[in-house]
Design a protein around this nucleic acid. Structure first.
Length: 342
DNA sequence: AAACATGACAACCGCCGGGGA
DNA sequence: ATCCCCGGCGGTTGTCATGTT
């Protein structure tokens, strides 16, 4: 038994809004507000539209100070950074871009940014393959799972040493490893509570227009930090996974000072291919011989497929195999970049 | 010039969670 | 404590514009 429809589908108009409809809706809301009830609103003003449709039209188009198109490089960076960090939480991302709507950003991402990044990545791969002659296993592949027969735990690769990003200068908060770690924690309390004490300073991070940072927003969504971390300690040179409230993320553990450098590199060069492999699906995997790498771990390779979110359901993991199967591939290389000068 | 392909954006759909009854 | 309504969200589809053959 399905949910009752929010309106009488037979008697509502669908499709593009006419200027008259726009004018009606706009003038009414400007004068009276929404009245806290979108469902009833179209009837009040004599619009044959679904309440939800009115809401969407208002929020995405009629609302004052809405910007359309013309995304700047900086906005690109912000979107990419946040997507890498928090996944397809468009509303959170939109909150950091004044005048942009979640729908706009979502469309922009799906139609342009993703392809833009893909194009860059392909170029890079071609260049690399040309140089190498033979494609070989890359030790710094973020997806790399190396055999660790002793511990039977995934060995996450070390993040390659890369030059610091100019963006680092814009955001000193992100210049050190600790800040990155804090940020990742803040991104959802997705780590062992071992790190909880260092959360406080993160509130200093400023995002645009004085709104709460998405990181803070997300942290506030979190309920608790659980005690059953998955893979809570691997070793100091590995990416670490923690599981607290159901989300899983990767973190460079102490001793690695290169994580932020990678992030900086991604932002400064707009090369988001580090950490965005999941956009490329099978092709990407093939290109980097990830399939082979995966099987080198003694596991059958898994096509992780395209995923749109970094968020993931709770993991209750007792061994590596469980981790490997449950963990979104994004977790393996969750990287974060700061959205430029804000 | 027409047909087809592709891109960009608007809008819809259905699920989920919050909050009030 | 439960139910139900509504708003919010993300994924998907539809439509129109533009480019290409």
């Amino acid at each position: 038994m399905g949910r009752a429809p929010c309106c009488d589908k037979a008697n509502v108009k669908k499709g593009p809004w006419s200027p008259e409809e726009d004018a009606k809706l706009k003038s009414y809301i400007e004068q009276h507000g929404t009245g806290g009830n979108w469902i009833a609103l179209p009837q009040k003003i004599g619009l044959k539209r679904c309440g939800k449709s009115c809401r969407l039209r208002w929020l995405n188009y009629l609302r004052p100070n809405i910007k359309h198109g013309g995304f700047s490089e900086e906005e690109d960076n912000i979107i990419c950074s946040l997507y890498i960090s928090i996944g397809s939480r468009w509303s959170v991302i939109a909150a950091q871009l004044p005048g942009r709507t979640d729908n706009d950003i979502k469309n922009y991402w799906n139609t342009r940014l993703k392809k833009k990044l893909l194009g860059k990545h392909r170029k890079e791969l071609q260049a690399r393959n040309k140089g190498n002659g033979v494609v070989k296993q890359e030790n710094n592949s973020p997806l790399l799972l190396q055999e660790n027969s002793v511990q039977q735990k995934p060995c996450w690769p070390q993040i390659p040493v890369l030059p610091l990003s100019p963006y680092a200068n814009h955001s000193p908060s992100f210049n050190d490893q600790d800040s990155i770690r804090k940020l990742l924690i803040k991104l959802g309390g997705r780590f062992s509570h071992d790190y909880q004490p260092i959360l406080d300073g993160l509130n200093d991070i400023q995002f645009s227009h004085g709104s709460p940072s998405p990181i803070k927003q997300i942290q506030e969504e979190q309920v608790h930090v659980g005690s059953s971390g998955c893979m809570s300690s691997i070793d100091n040179n590995q990416l670490q996974f923690g599981q607290s409230n159901g989300y899983c993320a990767a973190e460079l553990v102490q001793g690695q000072g290169n994580f932020n450098a990678t992030i900086g590199e991604m932002v400064s060069t707009n090369d988001y291919s580090h950490g965005l492999e999941f956009f490329y699906g099978e092709e990407m995997i093939t290109d980097n011989k990830i399939m082979g790498v995966s099987s080198s771990c003694g596991q059958s390779s898994t096509n992780w497929g395209e995923s749109s979110s970094l968020m993931y359901p709770p993991l209750v993991v007792s061994n590596y195999e469980d981790v490997r199967q449950e963990m979104p591939r994004e977790c393996a290389f969750q990287e974060l970049s700061y959205p430029g000068a804000q």
